[in-house]
C-alpha cells in the first residue's frame, strides 16, 4: 500500500491541475458513451491471444463516470509453462466509477476504480521428456471448468476528442468520438486456485503469478447522444 501512495498523490495533483485549467462549459447532465478496446482486437492476429472488450459509460455532468465493461478472451501464453500447451478462456465483467477532469478543450484525464470478475476455464497438455533410457515421454491433460476470479483496479483514464469537422469547431461531430487509453493497476482479490498445476492466466486480469498487475488499454469512445 505504501507504494500506492505516490501514485494516488500524483493522480490527485493531475486532477487538480486539470480543474484549474478547465474552460467553463455547459455540462450535459447525462451522456451515455460506448467504447471499444481496439488494442485488444488489434492483437488478436497473434496466435497467443484473442480478446474482445467493450465498455458502456454513463457520464454524469461530464464529470462522474459510471462504468460497465465486459469482454471475452482466449489466452495461449507461450511462457506459461516450459512443457505445457496451456489455454485459458472465458468472459469477464467490470463495474466501477470514476471522475473526469478537463485538461483542455480537447483533452480529459480521470481517475477511477473498478471491480472485476471473471468466469473462465483452462486446459493444458503436459508433455515431459526426461531424456531417459527407461521411460517414454510422459503426457497428461487437465481441463478445469467453472473457474472464477475477482480483482479491483485503480484506473487512470486519458482521452482526447477527435475533431471530424475542423472547419467548424462547434460542430456536433466534434463531440462524438474520443480516443485514449486506460492505465489500470490491478490487485487480485481471489481466484479458484488449482493444484498441483495452478491457473496461469485469468481472462480480464492476467497472470496469477502477479498479485498486482499494471495494464494499458487503448480505446475508441463514442458519445451515443
Amino acid at each position: 500500500m505504501k507504494r500506492l501512495l505516490p501514485v494516488l498523490f500524483s493522480l490527485i495533483a493531475v486532477a487538480v491541475q486539470g480543474q484549474n485549467d478547465t474552460v467553463e462549459v455547459h455540462r450535459k447532465p447525462f451522456t451515455p458513451r460506448l467504447y471499444w478496446d481496439y488494442g485488444k482486437t488489434a492483437l488478436s492476429w497473434s496466435n497467443f491471444e484473442t480478446k474482445t472488450e467493450f465498455g458502456l459509460e454513463i457520464l454524469l455532468f461530464e464529470r462522474i463516470q459510471l462504468i460497465g465493461e465486459g469482454g471475452t478472451a482466449t489466452l495461449k501464453p507461450e511462457k506459461a509453462f516450459q512443457n505445457v500447451e496451456y489455454t485459458s478462456q472465458g468472459q469477464y465483467f467490470r463495474i466501477g466509477a470514476g471522475y473526469l477532469a478537463n485538461l483542455s478543450a480537447k483533452d480529459r484525464i480521470g481517475i477511477g476504480v473498478r471491480y472485476g470478475i471473471s468466469n473462465f476455464e483452462d486446459e493444458g497438455l503436459v508433455s515431459i521428456d526426461f531424456q531417459s533410457d527407461l521411460n517414454d515421454v510422459y503426457t497428461s491433460q487437465f481441463n478445469r471448468k467453472d473457474l472464477n476470479a475477482s480483482w479491483y483496479e485503480i484506473v487512470l483514464n486519458s482521452e482526447r476528442k477527435v475533431h471530424l469537422n475542423r472547419s467548424n469547431p462547434e460542430s456536433i461531430l466534434n463531440d462524438i468520438f474520443h480516443i485514449g487509453f486506460l492505465f489500470r493497476y490491478r490487485v487480485l482479490i481471489e481466484y479458484t486456485d488449482q493444484q498441483p498445476i495452478d491457473i496461469y492466466t485469468i481472462p480480464g486480469y492476467g497472470r496469477t503469478l502477479d498479485k498486482r498487475l499494471p495494464a494499458i488499454n487503448l480505446f475508441l469512445k463514442v458519445n451515443l447522444f
Partner: peptide, 20 residues
C-alpha cells in the same frame, strides 16, 4: 507542467509493476 506531472505519474505506476 502537466506533462511533467503526467510523466511522474506514469513512472510511479511503472515502479509498481513486477516481473517473475
Amino acid at each position: 507542467m502537466k506533462s511533467v506531472l503526467f510523466a511522474s505519474l506514469f513512472l510511479s505506476l511503472l515502479i509498481l509493476s513486477s516481473c517473475d
